[in-house]
């Protein structure tokens, strides 16, 4: 079973291409900053330099090194994506598993909670929070995204748990004296492992997109550089009019590539796990 999945995984072009792109970008984001000794916001040289030997991606109107910004931005973007997606996945799993397995009034309460968060006007809430708390770090951004993005994951996990709960092996585990928590973790979750992975990937990509749009409308972190922030600044300082394509193309392409590659990898993984979609 496992080896079979592996067999199909290493032959699935979509998965390989998607994962390859992600790994390369992740590598740049993780290792890259160690090779850049100055902080990305430092004014290092000539303004508006096109890409070249000294500044790989050129500089912006302030003379900041865009390669340095891109590399640090990638790191932040991945971090926010992983953290936001991770928080959303954990909440979604806890809520979904509990509601689906326990049923009854627990299900009804959790369902209500899910629906409330689902219809919450997130942007308005964020504006208000921002005005009152005023903390704008990458961590807070991830937390906020995580706290608002879980409902759809919870819903689909609940539905799957619900159908697995009716299977006889769950009853048999109960007859073996195993408690609810263990049944969820050790009987139900492993049956959905591929699905949970797919959910996390989608949440991950979703968080990156949301973070970037938040950055773009000016709600980004104030303590870090991210790809979304680069875009926002390029926009604010009219990079387009000035013809400074090297200011907005790399971050734009970076976001598109990450999200696109995640999506492609997701489709590939789906094919690997789902025998019906496999092409033999």
């Amino acid at each position: 079973m496992k080896t079979e999945a592996l067999y199909f995984a290493i032959r699935n072009t979509k998965l390989l291409v998607g994962a390859g792109i992600i790994l390369v970008l992740l590598g740049i984001g993780v290792i890259g900053p160690f090779f850049i000794d100055k902080p990305p916001t430092e004014y290092v040289g000539m303004q508006m330099q096109p890409p070249g030997g000294e500044f790989w991606l050129g500089t912006n109107t302030f003379g900041q090194d865009l390669w340095a910004q891109f590399v640090h931005g990638l790191r932040t973007t991945f971090l926010v994506g992983a953290l936001g997606g991770g928080i959303a996945a954990v909440i979604g799993m806890v809520v979904g598993f509990l509601a689906g397995y326990k049923g009854g009034w627990i299900d009804e309460i959790l369902n209500m909670l899910t629906n409330i968060v689902l219809v919450l006007p997130t942007l308005a809430v964020l504006f208000i929070l921002n005005a009152y708390i005023g903390v704008r770090s990458a961590g807070m951004q991830a937390l906020f995204i995580g706290l608002t993005q879980w409902p759809w994951a919870a819903r689909s996990i609940r539905a799957q748990t619900f159908s697995l709960r009716g299977r006889d092996f769950v009853d048999l585990a109960r007859l073996s004296g195993v408690g609810s928590g263990r049944i969820i973790m050790r009987e139900i979750a492993p049956n959905m492992s591929s699905y949970l992975l797919l959910t996390f990937i989608l949440l991950f990509g979703g968080s990156i997109l949301i973070a970037s749009s938040l950055d773009f409308i000016g709600l980004g972190p104030t303590d870090a550089v991210s790809l979304g922030l680069m875009l926002q600044q390029a926009h604010q300082w009219s990079a387009m009019h000035l013809g400074l394509w090297w200011w907005f193309v790399p971050p734009g392409a970076g976001i598109t590539l990450i999200v696109g590659a995640l999506y492609v990898a997701n489709v590939g993984l789906d094919e690997v796990f789902n025998p019906k979609l496999r092409e033999l």
Binding site: M1, R167, D168, F169, D171, L172, E187, P190, N191, S193
Partner: peptide
């Protein structure tokens, strides 16, 4: 139970 295949967790 009735269904031997549903009585076993298929991943184990």
């Amino acid at each position: 139970f009735q269904d031997p295949f549903s009585s076993y967790n298929p991943v184990f």
